[in-house]
Computed example of a mutant assay.
Amino acid sequence: MNGQEAAPTRRGFSTPGELLTAPQVMARLQLGRSAAYDLLGTRQLARSPLGRARRIPTHALTDFIHTRLDQEAA
């Protein structure tokens, strides 16, 4: 492995850019704090604990958006 390759982790994340903070999710979804934390608390939006912090994988945000769009279309 050369010095430029990122080693995959247990869940397959390789770079910090693939994990979002709650405020980043709030900004991307244009939601307030309460609404964003409700999505996390009800597990409608998957999260990965990192110590005391919560991080949201970008694929979880994408999946959430696609699921909501599919529900709207049905």
Rank of each mutant, 00 (worst) to 15 (best):
M1I: 12
M1E: 11
M1C: 11
N2C: 11
N2E: 14
G3D: 15
G3S: 15
Q4G: 11
E5Y: 10
E5W: 11
E5F: 14
A6S: 12
A6R: 12
P8W: 02
P8M: 01
P8D: 00
P8K: 00
T9W: 05
T9G: 10
R10P: 06
R10L: 14
R10D: 10
R10Q: 13
R11S: 13
G12T: 00
F13H: 09
F13A: 03
F13E: 08
F13K: 06
T15G: 07
P16T: 07
P16D: 11
P16C: 05
E18M: 01
L19S: 04
L19N: 03
L19K: 04
L20K: 01
T21P: 02
A22P: 08
A22H: 05
Q24N: 01
Q24P: 00
A27C: 08
A27I: 06
A27K: 12
R28V: 05
R28C: 07
L29V: 02
Q30A: 11
Q30Y: 09
Q30P: 09
L31C: 08
L31I: 07
L31G: 05
G32T: 06
G32D: 00
G32E: 00
R33H: 09
R33Q: 10
R33F: 13
S34L: 13
S34G: 13
A35M: 10
A35G: 06
Y37N: 04
Y37D: 03
Y37A: 06
Y37R: 03
D38V: 09
L39E: 01
L40F: 03
L40A: 04
G41C: 03
G41V: 06
G41Y: 08
T42M: 09
R43F: 12
R43P: 05
Q44H: 08
Q44G: 13
L45R: 05
L45Q: 00
R47K: 15
R47C: 15
S48I: 13
S48V: 12
P49M: 04
P49G: 06
P49D: 04
L50K: 09
G51D: 02
R52V: 08
R52D: 08
A53K: 11
R54T: 12
R54M: 12
R55Q: 04
I56N: 02
I56Y: 00
P57L: 01
T58V: 10
T58G: 06
T58M: 07
H59T: 15
A60C: 02
F64A: 01
F64K: 03
I65F: 02
I65K: 06
I65H: 03
I65P: 03
I65G: 02
H66I: 12
H66S: 09
T67N: 11
R68Q: 10
R68D: 03
Q71A: 13
E72N: 14
E72S: 12
A73W: 10
A73V: 08
A73T: 10
A74S: 13
A74P: 08
